[in-house]
């Protein structure tokens, strides 16, 4: 019987090695360890053994059973692993195939630039003010120190509705409106659409977008204007951007400046984008003219302030390298989806 057991173990363990499928393994288990299995039936014959033999053979039988069970467990693990590997091999994908398209919509480039500018100024404690596009001549011109028949009005080709009503030529009237309703300290930006009688071409549009800024408080200096514009320029055009102020004239600021940023194309060494200048003009700014403060009910002997205005469309064109202004209003999907 001992020999029998030993031969069963040897045979069984050899067989185990050859098993390739789980189902086969189960059959194997039943064949040896099942109720009618080979080992079981041998053990059934234990009753005929002598009391001396019985514990010896019993122990041996248990050892054989344990060995088979361990072998089965190991084989099972081997087979599961192999099966999993086979599955993985079979379901391997060509991961270089394109992903399934998710069509997320895109914001317009002007909105993107506006959002960036808003974020910069919100961070510096500004609120966002708005005003009407069909505007009174008073707010667009007179309250900004440009009385009727002032020659400076010629520089802004104006669309008129009536003698007193027009399409605002800049976002500056929002300044005038805001000062009437709010007391200093004031920190606002006013984004919006503006209108000038320019024919449509690659670099002109009768409708474009500006952001106006206004700060009024006690002791506001031109240094504050310069510092603020620096933060703005670095925020929009990158940390290495420098700004340059040139004296200019606007009726509603004094002193007034035109502001250039170092060219985003070449960083200031001169290239095609800046026409070799190294600088690109992007905005007008200055200290709020005393007459404008007065028109807003603010005492220029107590308060001072600065204001600036910049064109968004051109900044968007510069930032994204758009070479034709008409693209901004044509809304070709292939254009819009690029941003």
């Amino acid at each position: 019987m001992k020999q029998q057991l030993e031969s069963i173990q040897k045979k069984a363990l050899e067989k185990l090695e050859t098993i390739q499928e789980l189902r086969e393994l189960e059959d194997f288990r039943v064949a040896y360890l099942g109720k009618k299995g080979e080992l079981t039936s041998i053990l059934k014959g234990m009753g005929s053994l002598s009391p001396e033999e019985r514990p010896v053979i019993g122990q041996l039988a248990n050892e054989v059973r344990n060995a088979l069970e361990a072998g089965i467990a190991a084989a099972k693990e081997r087979l599961i692993k192999a099966a999993r590997e086979e599955k993985i091999r079979q379901e391997t994908l060509d991961v270089t195939m394109p992903g399934r398209a998710r069509k997320l919509g895109k914001k317009h480039p002007i909105t993107l630039v506006l959002d960036e500018i808003k974020e910069i100024f919100l961070g510096m404690g500004y609120e966002i003010a708005e005003g009407p596009e069909v505007e009174l001549d008073y707010f667009n011109f007179e309250a900004l120190n440009m009385p009727r028949n002032h020659p400076a009005r010629d520089t802004q080709d104006t669309f008129y509705i009536t003698e007193d009503v027009l399409l605002r030529t800049h976002t500056s009237p929002v300044q005038a409106r805001y000062m009437k309703d709010h007391k200093p300290p004031i920190r606002i930006i006013c984004p919006g659409r503006v209108y000038r009688s320019d024919a449509v071409d690659a670099t002109h549009s009768p409708i474009f977008h500006q952001v106006e800024g206004l700060v009024v408080d006690k002791g506001v200096t031109m240094g504050d204007l310069v510092g603020t514009l620096q933060v703005f320029a670095k925020g929009v055009f990158g940390e290495n951007t420098r700004i340059r102020l040139r004296p200019h004239h606007f009726n509603f600021t004094e002193p007034s400046a035109e502001v250039d940023v170092s060219c985003w194309g070449c960083g200031g060494t001169g290239c095609r984008i800046c026409k070799g200048e190294g600088w690109i003009e992007i905005l007008g700014a200055g200290m709020v003219h005393p007459n404008v403060l007065r028109a807003g009910g603010i005492d220029p002997d107590v308060y001072s302030g600065f204001a600036f205005g910049l064109g968004i469309d051109r900044i968007a064109m510069g930032k994204f390298g758009i070479d034709d202004m008409r693209l901004l209003f044509e809304n070709d999907i292939r254009f819009l989806r690029q941003f």
């Binding site: 240094g223 310069v226 510092g227 620096q230 102020l245 400046a257």
Partner: peptide, 9 residues
């Protein structure tokens, strides 16, 4: 103008 020292309110 560019000699004016920048400040931030």
């Amino acid at each position: 103008y560019n000699n004016i020292k920048p400040s931030l309110l």
